[in-house]
Design a protein around this nucleic acid. Sequence first.
DNA 1: TGCTGACGGAACGGAACTCGATCATGGCTG
DNA 2: CAGCCATGATCGAGTTCCGTTCCGTCAGCA
Lengths: 218, 218
Amino acid sequence: MALIDTFGGDSVAQGRQIRTEPIQQRSAARLTALLDAAAEVVDEVGFDRITTAMVAERAGASIGTVYRYYPDRVAVLEGLRERAVQRFRQRVADTLKETQPGTWWEAVDCGISAFVELYRAEPGFRILHFADRERAQSTGPDQLDSGFFANQIAGVLSEEFGLSGGPDLIFRLEVAVEMADSLLSRAFTWNTQGDERFIAECRRIMHDYLVGYYGTDA
Amino acid sequence: MALIDTFGGDSVAQGRQIRTEPIQQRSAARLTALLDAAAEVVDEVGFDRITTAMVAERAGASIGTVYRYYPDRVAVLEGLRERAVQRFRQRVADTLKETQPGTWWEAVDCGISAFVELYRAEPGFRILHFADRERAQSTGPDQLDSGFFANQIAGVLSEEFGLSGGPDLIFRLEVAVEMADSLLSRAFTWNTQGDERFIAECRRIMHDYLVGYYGTDA
DNA sequence: TGCTGACGGAACGGAACTCGATCATGGCTG
DNA sequence: CAGCCATGATCGAGTTCCGTTCCGTCAGCA
């Protein structure tokens, strides 16, 4: 289970976007309060109507506190996104441990389910796109993009289910992640519970695309 | 060729985002200059660092002129996106007339090629995403989303190539548009010329997904 | 030459962000 | 164990920057 733990493990590269690591306990609480507030506000007013003042007020903090932890408005959103990614990975790791899927395909299906469940339940989760093109445009490939996910997933699948890893598998998974992300996001665009047609079609397509090439056996 | 003309025809729903239709000639030139400037600036500083002042200066106009034509900053970006969509549709229509594809699959392939070519050549074209989720979040489905495209394409395919139209075809095409958009955008995320692996894989996937269900014959 | 469309840019409002004063925490010391 | 105090944390008025308005001026057309 080593790699599954890695998959659900601590998030990476947080230092680039946070200003001060919290030392005291209360400040750690503040930080999560800020992100909780941001999540709510994002769901309410949308991605670009959000203001730092709203986040601060909702979190019961002052403007200055927001800027103590995040260099600018966009960084708050990125922090929220990163936490969402983290929770997604944790959820997948937990589900895998619980269900002990027999085939790698079932494992992939767990990932889709986890995504859907969190999208339904978690405020602000809609901010999560594995393919974060805005950010990528300026900073280049980083550890939160779909390629990173493809790597992680490839590790789990080859380690746990004996799939032959390598560039081919990684590329195929990156394509899969990209497609699944777009279809699932589309499912939730005009339907807060997720349009079942798109979710079902996503599962079907992932199945055909991956199983068609790698077979169903472990 | 009626429906192909429709496909490449005048854009819809422009009135919602433009303030004053240009009357005199010079103002029409101004308008395109504004959009050209916006396209350049978007490529340089990215989607959310763009300011109205930058656009005005680059276009050799004043702030007031920007607001003469567009109600706000976002509308400028929407105008740019709409022009990009328009040019894409025109390019597809032209290509279809030139090459006279024998099968509907070849027609779809023309669409992919047109997208890639414009992405390479047209400044600011990266702004074009058929799946415009930011906007959708607040305004609901409109005529510029992937569903609209799916409708248009379904019309052409059933009219010109005798595919049986209907909800099934439209849904399938919407899924296809969504996936193609994400894969092609991914191809250009870290490679201004477009990562050929993703482009080729996109063609392959579209082929499998569509031809697998509707066959290759006209 | 007058009428109307087009243009410019100072001025306004509001949101992002800074900064120095002030408060709270928790380890340390006697 | 109480009190001290270095340093982390917080606050919020102030600054700057940006989106947007508005009206005075200029240019095209009859």
